[in-house]
Amino acid sequence: MCLGLPMTIVETDGVSALCEYCGGQRRVSVLLLSAPPVGAKVLVYIDTAIRLLEEEEARLIGAAIEGVGAALNGEDFDRFFADLVDREPQLPEHLR
């Protein structure tokens, strides 16, 4: 399974960018984006930044990834999904 990671651009030359996530860095393509600046949060999938992220969305994605890791390790994971605890799942408008 492949996951998209919320990464922060550390440096870029317009074609590729050095991005960081959880203390690790990797160079990714930014050709699908329109000149993302240093400091921008991007969703990276298979070494390609596929879209810009708002700070809150990047935080939620990062928390969900940490939550999956906690669940796989048999640890409590509710704190990683605080936005979902104590509410019913909601279908997108087009599926209602």
Rank of each mutant, 00 (worst) to 15 (best):
G14I: 08
V15C: 07
V15D: 02
V15H: 12
S16W: 01
A17I: 13
A17G: 13
L18I: 15
L18S: 04
E20Q: 14
E20V: 13
Y21N: 11
Y21V: 14
Y21C: 08
C22G: 09
G24V: 13
Q25P: 07
Q25E: 15
R26V: 08
R26S: 11
R26H: 05
R26M: 15
R27V: 14
R27S: 06
V28I: 15
V28F: 09
V28K: 01
V28Y: 04
S29V: 08
S29C: 12
V30S: 07
V30Q: 01
L31R: 13
L31S: 03
L31P: 06
L32I: 01
S34E: 11
S34R: 06
S34I: 00
A35H: 03
A35N: 10
A35F: 05
P36V: 04
P36H: 06
P37A: 12
P37F: 10
V38L: 05
V38I: 13
V38R: 05
V38K: 09
V38C: 12
V38A: 02
G39C: 07
V42C: 14
L43Q: 01
L43N: 05
V44N: 04
V44Y: 03
Y45S: 13
Y45M: 04
Y45G: 01
I46C: 13
I46Y: 14
D47F: 12
A49Q: 02
I50F: 06
R51D: 00
R51N: 02
L52G: 04
L52F: 01
L53A: 01
L53H: 11
L53R: 01
L53Y: 02
E54I: 04
E54L: 03
E54K: 05
E54P: 07
E57L: 04
E57V: 08
A58Y: 06
L60K: 10
G62Y: 02
I65V: 11
I65N: 07
E66M: 09
E66P: 03
E66D: 11
G67K: 09
G67I: 01
G67A: 01
A70V: 12
A70I: 10
A70C: 11
A71I: 15
L72A: 13
L72E: 15
N73W: 06
N73E: 12
N73V: 03
G74Y: 11
E75S: 05
D76Y: 14
D76V: 12
F77G: 01
F77A: 11
D78L: 15
D78T: 14
D78H: 14
D78K: 12
R79Q: 07
R79T: 15
R79K: 12
F80P: 00
F80R: 02
F81N: 00
A82S: 15
A82W: 10
D83Q: 03
L84S: 00
L84W: 04
L84D: 00
L84R: 05
V85R: 03
D86C: 02
D86P: 00
R87K: 08
R87V: 06
